[in-house]
């Protein structure tokens, strides 16, 4: 899935003050690319991610998904887009505590009805991320790494064309973080899924990754990381 951002601006009102969190930002994210959005806190990384995921609307500019302007979509189309084509992964895992691992994976399917086949696929994806023995466990019974793997399985179940991850390794130790990042890279390689990750942690950047560096809502650097390690 190709993502194009054309002169995107996003403003928030905070009391009497209007804050510009994304400022006239333009870029292309190619289908099947592995993209990192990096930058300091408050630089507009997460806001940009939510704009791409149709969870928010830009104040100005256009977000194009495979050439279609998101702002022209109905809410039904956007819901379908989020349900079927996007896999969201969040820093704090964001699992529903009253649901088991399997049911958390099936959350997006609940409104349309969960088939036995869906349930079997959920089990398979949980096994794929190494949680075959934790199917009936609740989030409170899982470690942070396990919870994030459930969130990844939830994203994988949709077989999405676009994965949006907001600090997916932010609350994990480096070893578990590397495992989680490995799942995302496998997904990109095997299914040509477009993966966009917001992160502070530059240790996950690899040669060939598309890097977008933000500062105060503007792109300060955009490049493809080469084989030779460089300081960003």
């Amino acid at each position: 899935m190709q993502v194009q951002l054309e002169h995107i601006t996003k403003r928030h009102r905070s009391g009497d003050e209007e804050l510009t969190v994304v400022d006239d930002l333009t870029c292309d994210i190619q289908e099947g690319s592995f993209t990192f959005i990096i930058g300091p806190s408050g630089s507009g990384k997460s806001s940009l991610l939510y704009l791409i995921g149709a969870l928010d609307l830009p104040s100005q500019g256009r977000v194009l998904i495979d050439g279609e302007d998101l702002s022209t979509w109905s809410s039904t189309r956007k819901n379908k887009f989020r349900r079927e084509e996007i896999g969201f992964i969040f820093q704090s895992f964001n699992l529903l505590k009253q649901l088991t691992a399997v049911d958390n994976v099936l959350v997006s399917e609940m409104p349309v009805g969960v088939s036995g086949e869906d349930r079997q696929r959920a089990v398979d994806y949980l096994k794929q991320v190494g949680l075959g023995h934790r199917l009936g466990h609740y989030p409170s019974q899982l470690s942070g790494g396990e919870q994030q793997r459930v969130a990844i399985a939830r994203a994988l179940l949709k077989e999405p064309s676009l994965v949006l991850a907001d600090e997916p390794t932010g609350e994990l130790d480096s070893k578990t973080g590397a495992i989680v990042m490995g799942y995302l890279r496998d997904l990109q390689k095997q299914k040509q899924t477009t993966v966009i990750i917001v992160t502070h942690d530059h240790s996950h950047l690899r040669p060939g990754d598309h890097i977008i560096e933000l500062h105060d809502g503007k792109i300060v650097k955009q490049y493809v990381k080469d084989a030779t390690p460089t300081h960003v």
Binding site: Q98, L99, D103, M110, G113
Partner: peptide, 23 residues
């Protein structure tokens, strides 16, 4: 084992039930 094709349309209601008894 769950047979493919089995539908669980009541999962929203199931979630609702679990939510109210969570407190």
């Amino acid at each position: 084992m769950i047979s493919p094709g089995t539908i669980f349309p009541g999962m929203v209601f199931g979630l609702a039930f679990r939510n109210i008894w969570a407190r």
